[in-house]
């Protein structure tokens, strides 16, 4: 069967996969709410940095500036997070990946639909933060122009894809090692420090910023946040979108190859 037929099947099946994924997300809503509470680190950062900025701004950040930055960070994180590594790791170890491998659709496609389907619910749950950000802190900041809005949405999609593919890549390590979650922990440490999740990247020493801009972490948090908070404009957005999508393609290719080669080693024990 040709690649075109495969693609046609995916396009036709995807809306149903999303619908079923949303039904699953609704079934797990309480668990998801608890899980979302564990990703509220930007609010902790907000409290800390607000205290620091009480007497004088830090760089260009006033207390209000920090509030806008970290609320936007919280929203971007909710919209772009992926937890695939846990699921993939568990399904490889327990053998339950078998049920996905038996279907005539790539398992990463079904995982992606499950991930995406949960986003409306996650967005609804973070709506209060979005309202505070848009109405109280930065009224009129969003959307500034259709182009900026389009670039912001593209950056959000790119951030989600980098996260998703990276989680698929790290999760696929479970085909080779007994567990891949330790490697995920390493990724998370680097993510926390270098993505702008806990500290705005502008506050890093100038000498480090070049390195940070070349690493992928910035493109999953700071880059979309800076577009939506108006820090990044015009050509700078276009240039960084190029870097972000290069990472998307690189992470996508690596994830697909790692998964494909891992499946050859799959033992399907117990599954």
């Amino acid at each position: 069967m040709s690649a075109r037929a495969d693609l046609r099947r995916v396009v036709r099946a995807y809306p149903t996969l999303l619908r079923v994924g949303l039904a699953e997300a609704v079934a797990y809503r309480a668990e998801m709410l608890v899980w979302m509470l564990t990703t509220t680190m930007p609010l902790v950062s907000l409290a800390l940095w607000s205290a620091v900025a009480e007497t004088a701004p830090v760089g260009r950040f006033t207390q209000r500036g920090f509030a806008a930055y970290f609320l936007a960070t919280l929203l971007v994180r909710q919209l772009t997070g992926s937890w695939l590594v846990w699921e993939l790791n568990q399904e490889i170890r327990s053998g339950t990946l078998s049920r996905r491998l038996l279907r005539p659709i790539h398992p990463l496609i079904t995982y992606s639909a499950q991930n995406l389907a949960a986003i409306p619910l996650r967005f609804a749950m973070t709506l209060p933060a979005a309202v505070v950000w848009l109405v109280v802190l930065e009224p009129g900041a969003f959307p500034r122009s259709p182009l900026a809005l389009g670039a912001g949405l593209l950056a959000i999609l790119g951030a989600w894809l980098i996260n998703f593919f990276t989680m698929a890549l790290i999760g696929s390590i479970a085909f080779y090692l007994e567990s891949s979650t330790a490697i995920f922990d390493l990724w998370m440490v680097a993510f926390m420090l270098l993505s702008g999740y806990l500290v705005p990247l502008e506050l890093f020493p100038a000498a480090l910023r070049g390195v940070i801009h070349a690493l992928p972490f910035r493109y999953v948090i700071a880059f979309p946040v800076e577009i939506f908070t108006g820090t990044l404009r015009g050509e700078a957005i276009v240039g960084e979108l190029g870097i972000q999508w290069a990472y998307v393609l690189g992470a996508g290719a690596a994830a697909i190859l790692a998964f494909r080669s891992g499946v050859k080693r799959f033992s399907a024990f117990g599954g």
């Binding site: 036709r12 099946a13 149903t16 996969l17 619908r19 079923v20 797990y28 279907r103 005539p104 079904t110």
Partner: peptide, 16 residues
Amino acid sequence: DLPPADTFTMNRAIYE
């Protein structure tokens, strides 16, 4: 956590 009817619907889409 979903009724079997949802799995049936999903399989209908996947298997065309």
